[in-house]
Simulated scan of single mutants.
Amino acid sequence: MERIWIADEQIVDETGTRPYLEPYLVPDATSAVIVLPGGGYEFRADHEGGPVAQWLNEQGISAFVLQYRLTPKHRGTPLEDGQAAIRYVRAHASQYGLRPDRIGILGFSAGGHLTAMTGTVFSEQEITLSDGRVESVSSRPDLMVLCYPVITMEGYGHEGSKNALLGTDASAERIAAHSAERQVTTHTPPAFIWHTADDEAVPVQNSLRMALALEQHGVPFELHVYDHGGHGAGLATGHPSMGSWTERCADWLHRQGW
């Protein structure tokens, strides 16, 4: 699989891995989604990466799997990788035949937290393109898909993700700053969210809090809560309850113009 480096050589995690994108391109596709696997900020779950990108390809959407830096050596820095990924794909949209206003992001569990943070904390940055031109490129995704996401670093959060990302001695201010529901504004992009009511690893309150924050700021969203299915199912192919999330998400993506 091709690797598209999105950071300088010295930017690596504790395994020596430099953040990169794996492209899954569809001929003639004009929209793309960047996929962020989960793993508690300690590893990246394979079944939430490549297979999800291939499912997006089946919907006529190009995809990029982001292999972001892990912690604890680089606590708090995965957000930089999420932002860099959006900027890279947007800056090179014409190279991939994409529209720069059709760049979305999708994540599972801790990757869902990184997705939510990337979707709520964004800025513009100057990027030098391959032809030497310098452009100011935004890291704001045009939509986000949150799959059984870690959202808050406060009550009902996932302690493992919190400790891996922030450490065990994080201040109240730092915890609040990494609670995605607190970062929502009227500029947050539309969202598709799904969770299970019996998720014991990442309680459903995470998705409910995010949905409430979106509603309070007038941001369009679609929320699905399945009665059972636990945590970490990925595509959940064939599951009698949550197996329908991919169909519902595909419908939502197409309604957004993807």
Rank of each mutant, 00 (worst) to 15 (best):
R140D: 00
R140I: 03
L143E: 03
R69N: 09
G111W: 00
I86V: 14
T118Q: 06
H74C: 13
Q125E: 15
H92N: 12
L114I: 04
E80M: 13
E126A: 15
I127G: 08
I105K: 04
P72D: 02
G82R: 01
G107K: 05
V89S: 01
T71D: 06
H74A: 15
G97L: 03
T120R: 11
S136D: 07
D101C: 08
S123W: 12
S136C: 10
P78C: 06
F122L: 08
A93I: 00
S123F: 15
F122G: 04
A84M: 00
R102Y: 06
Q59M: 14
G111C: 01
L98Q: 00
R87Q: 02
V121P: 09
G104E: 02
R75M: 13
H113M: 11
P141W: 04
Y88I: 03
T118E: 05
P141C: 03
S130I: 13
P141E: 04
F108M: 07
S62A: 13
L143I: 11
L106Y: 05
Q59A: 14
F64A: 01
D101S: 10
D131F: 12
G82D: 02
Y68P: 00
M144Y: 05
Q95G: 07
F108G: 04
S123D: 15
R102I: 06
I103R: 01
G112M: 13
G119Y: 07
G107E: 07
V137Y: 07
G107N: 08
S94E: 14
H92E: 07
E135H: 13
A63F: 05
T115D: 02
Q67P: 06
G132R: 09
S130V: 14
R99N: 11
H92S: 06
I103V: 10
A91G: 04
A110S: 12
G60Y: 07
S139L: 11
E58K: 14
V89F: 01
H113C: 11
E126I: 11
D131H: 12
I127Y: 10
P100L: 10
R69C: 06
G111Q: 00
H74R: 15
G104Y: 03
T128L: 13
G60T: 07
M117A: 13
E135F: 12
V89K: 01
F108L: 08
V121Y: 08
T118G: 05
P141D: 02
G112E: 12
D101T: 11
L70M: 06
G60N: 08
G76F: 10
E135S: 14
G97T: 03
A63G: 07
V65I: 06
Y88T: 03
Q95T: 15
Q67F: 09
E124F: 12
E80I: 13
L70W: 04
P100E: 14
M144K: 05
T71V: 08
R133G: 14
L129Y: 06
P78T: 04
G82L: 00
L114H: 01
G60D: 07
Q67H: 15
A110R: 02
V134A: 14
R87V: 03
Q95H: 13
A84K: 00
D81M: 04
G107S: 08
G76E: 11
K73L: 13
L129Q: 10
V145Y: 05
T120N: 14
A110Q: 01
L146T: 02
H113A: 10
S62D: 08
G97R: 02
F64K: 02
S123P: 10
T77V: 10
V134E: 13
F122W: 10
I105G: 03
S109M: 10
V65W: 01
V121H: 11
L106K: 05
R99T: 06
L66S: 00
E80K: 14
A93K: 01
